[in-house]
Design a protein around this nucleic acid. Structure first.
Lengths: 188, 188
DNA sequence: CCCCGACGAACGAACGATTGTTCGTTAGCC
DNA sequence: GGCTAACGAACAATCGTTCGTTCGTCGGGG
């Protein structure tokens, strides 16, 4: 029997928190998942709460990196939206449990950690809003409320954590293609 | 102090399950919400699980009624989609907590109740799929995979449980208008 | 080359708190 | 005066966490 690392524990937490919810997962459940006792996890991690913080922060970092990279690029708004959609789909299909925990369980963070995550999430949404607003200003998209439009686009994207199955009928590329088509037509 | 009814308990459960999650809500929390002790709730309800079943089933019934009514109507596909979107928005904005519990907490139902709900949810999605397929067949919508398209439309609609605020900037009618426009253009 | 000491991982019992639920008792309305 | 909602103590189970102990491995000195 090999010994487990902190990394193993964080990954198992991402998996179980996504599947059963934070409050539906006990430290003993987490131990079972790794072939350990619940108490043994405290060799690797300070608390259950800290485990949630770590999973959620990693999820947030993935999306933040995408937003920063696209925002910094010098491309027309339509291409930026397409890049955001494809990048978002790629993050979720490659890190589904982590993304699901980030999106669904962040509300169970302690107050201070939660506000930090809300700020990150707002900043991510702001990137979408600004790109859409730029597209409207340039006439690439029809006249519409960018705040509302960005919410609708993110609705389509975030729901992917709920229905994507690695063994499903559609490949990540097909999903991304369909979402780009749907979203671009919805904006234009 | 007035006495509480079973209805009061179910409604409070819908509220708290939506806000804190099923596993994050204790019977004593629910009692507090109603000015009662946790144990007093058992005068009205058999178990915490039964309470979840009841909230989720009510949520499912609302959406099922909408789907049945629209499916039975004799209108072109584009109008049916618009009616589904507007009806869906109306249900969520009028019953936000119940809808949120239905969509987010149904996975914590006991196995038998869960499969029953999954069947209802599949049937609801099937209504969308059929209407879209009909629209594609008649040339009202562009050629696309109706299964995937129905998921994308429902993604936009269901996310409303997460961001709608009665005191928010957009009225339910404005939201419905924006969603109809977004979805119809995404399909056409 | 072997042994030994050290160190971290894992154990397992135990803690106090909280969970869902039961039940005998009390109190308020028709 | 009876019915029932509500109380409040109590239950077994489970929760997150602590802690003293055991196990396994790895590096250095004889």
């Amino acid at each position: 029997m090999t010994t487990r690392s902190r990394e193993d524990v964080v990954q198992a937490a991402g998996r179980l928190f996504a599947a059963r919810g934070f409050h539906g997962t006990s430290m003993r459940d987490l131990g079972d998942e790794l072939g350990l006792l619940g108490s043994s996890l405290y060799s690797h991690v300070e608390s259950k709460e800290q485990l949630l913080i770590e999973v959620v922060q990693r999820g947030a970092a993935l999306f933040q990196a995408l937003a920063d990279s696209v925002a910094a690029s010098d491309r027309p708004p339509a291409e930026k939206v397409a890049a955001l959609v494809r990048g978002h789909v790629d993050i979720i299909t490659s890190n589904q449990e982590q993304s699901a925990t980030f999106l669904n369980e962040a509300r169970f963070l302690p107050a201070d950690g939660r506000t930090a995550i809300v700020i990150l999430r707002d900043r991510y949404e702001e990137t979408f809003r600004e790109v859409i607003a730029e597209g409207v200003a340039r006439g690439a998209f029809r006249d519409q409320n960018p705040a509302l439009a960005s919410i609708l686009v993110l609705s389509v994207l975030n729901a992917l954590t709920r229905w994507y199955r690695r063994s499903g009928a559609q490949s990540p590329e097909e999903i991304a293609d369909a979402m780009v088509a749907f979203v671009m037509d919805g904006l234009q």
